[in-house]
Design a protein around this nucleic acid. Structure first.
Lengths: 139, 139
DNA sequence: CTGGCTGCAAAGACTTTGCAAGGCT
DNA sequence: AGCCTTGCAAAGTCTTTGCAGCCAG
């Protein structure tokens, strides 16, 4: 998988450096699929790769530009990044433990139909997050 | 309307000060219904009310606590505040001019049903924003 | 009077940027 | 070799906080 992703970088004219590879690995090897810049930084630092945090930020932007990851803003105001590998989905975010699971449920088709007949707004993209209690945290 | 809102503050034990009233007015008299802290600050400053930006932040938090306004985080990572007066709704945000309109369409009931049969996640709240082109900006 | 509120200044969290040196290809 | 990248440090943006004096109730 790594090789495939690195290919995407090359196509865009980006080089493969050890730092960039370490950032990629964070997404591939960490359990969590939504990562903050700080979590990525922590991962690459723990791997003994000496790397500057501004390099992490720059690479997160480059990976986003290359379409490998994407960025979203949760309600806590923090930026999260995740791999783009999987199909369109939304997140179920636990307001107790913070864990995020994915759900493939997407209401966008219905929303489009509804908007079409009531407004002249042309939807392009959307953002949906559901907050609540995960199986472990609900009683 | 202002009187009613101020009543809500009193009930919570908050005092009515000129600065707090000015922040409230920003929400009542500005056209936009989604305001950033900076926009609120700009409004109260223009009104010749000398007021410190930290006071704006503190009052935004207090108004949120009193249930008068609520805060949300758009995809640009900026915090927006809006009056809670109106019923539940979501926003259609123009990616060209930035204008936000409201839509009462909400898929949450369907989402709840769908989640119930496929996961053990217990939804409490949700966040939905739709990005696209408004009537003026689309061609 | 008295606790909440404000202004001011400083600090904090997160992110971006300029520049010179270093490293892919 | 040539251009992309990196590290470092500084600056930028947005927001929070400590403190002393002030004000609404």
């Amino acid at each position: 998988m790594e090789a495939k992703l690195e290919e995407l970088l090359k196509v865009k004219g980006y080089k493969i450096t050890s730092q960039r590879r370490a950032v990629l690995e964070a997404f591939i090897y960490l359990d969590k699929h939504l990562l903050t810049a700080a979590e990525v930084y922590e991962y690459v630092s723990a791997k003994s790769n000496k790397i500057n945090s501004s390099t992490v930020y720059r690479n997160l932007e480059i990976l986003t530009d290359a379409g490998i990851i994407s960025r979203s803003n949760l309600d806590n105001g923090v930026n999260y990044y995740e791999l783009n590998l999987e199909g369109h989905h939304h997140h179920l975010i636990c307001i107790s433990c913070g864990a995020a699971e994915k759900t493939s449920f997407c209401p966008m088709e219905k929303i489009k139909l509804s908007l079409e007949e009531s407004t002249d707004f042309q939807p392009i993209d959307h953002k949906l997050e559901i907050y609540g209690y995960c199986g472990r945290c609900k009683k």
